[in-house]
């Protein structure tokens, strides 16, 4: 891409982050959000072979639960779409089968969380199964969505205009996310999301900053937020290049 965008992190965690992007259009911001949700391939269980299931649940129900277990996704280039990795589980009751009981044949693909309960087994019950995980995109099935809570808001600029008239009752002014005040980014959680507590007795003007968006991204553990955003932007670039090549005469 020829243009450069200004990106500034407000909160940065491994699975959750909030960052500001300046210089993008609303359409492009939505494109990034959609790419994060639907276009970044992740690993998820696609077929399960049940060797023994004497639990109280049907094979199909357990297969759906196994499919929703988030798996770590290998670095780009290690796998191509539709590649599979086999995982197995063997738990005998009385015990609860957790996602951590899944044993993978490849150390790059493992359950992202070890404490997702799959089924509670009573005395004498047993679950033994083998599962194939496949690399696919979120648009094929929701279990392949790497970004689970992805959204954005316009960045809002706060300006103190004047004092409130002497006898006017102060009204609460609720804002969410991050606001810009005197050129600084302030998370609204710092003042309980209410501008009237931050500036008591003041008249406040709030306006959208053009072409500046605050993204809030949370992943299911397949990869870090940074990786998710980078892969999403790469997928947009790849599709744009493909389109450019296709329409050239």
């Amino acid at each position: 891409m020829s243009e450069e965008y200004d990106v500034e992190f407000v909160e940065r965690g491994d699975r959750e982050a909030r960052f500001l992007v300046r210089g993008i259009t609303p359409g492009f911001a939505n494109g990034i959000r959609r790419a994060m949700v639907a276009d970044v391939p992740t690993m998820a269980i696609d077929t399960v072979r049940f060797i023994e299931n004497s639990s109280v649940m049907f094979d199909e129900q357990l297969a759906l639960r196994l499919g929703l277990v988030p798996l770590t996704t290998p670095p780009e280039g290690e796998f191509v779409e539709d590649d599979t990795v086999t995982l197995s589980i063997d738990v005998e009751g009385p015990a609860t089968a957790y996602s951590g009981d899944l044993v993978s044949s490849d150390s790059l693909v493992e359950p992202a969380d070890e404490n997702v309960p799959i089924i509670e087994l009573k005395d004498g019950q047993r679950l033994e199964a083998e599962a194939d995980a496949r690399l696919e995109r979120g648009k094929d099935h929701a279990k392949h969505q790497g970004g689970v809570a992805v959204g954005y808001r316009h960045l809002q600029r706060v300006e103190v205009v004047d004092d409130l008239p002497e006898f006017q009752e102060p009204e609460s002014q609720i804002v969410r996310g991050v606001v810009e005040e005197n050129g600084e980014l302030v998370p609204t959680s710092e003042f309980d999301h209410d501008l009237s507590t931050r500036h008591p007795g003041k008249e406040i003007r709030l306006e959208d900053v053009p072409n500046a968006f605050v993204f809030h991204v949370e992943t299911d553990g397949s990869f870090s937020v940074e990786e998710l955003v980078t892969r999403a932007v790469d997928s947009i670039e790849a599709r744009a290049t493909e389109l450019e090549d296709a329409v050239q005469l």
């Binding site: 998820a44 399960v48 072979r49 049940f50």
Partner: peptide
């Protein structure tokens, strides 16, 4: 009795 065959289930 449940059959001893291995049963394959698709996750869709």
């Amino acid at each position: 009795e449940r059959s001893r065959d291995v049963k394959e289930v698709g996750v869709r």
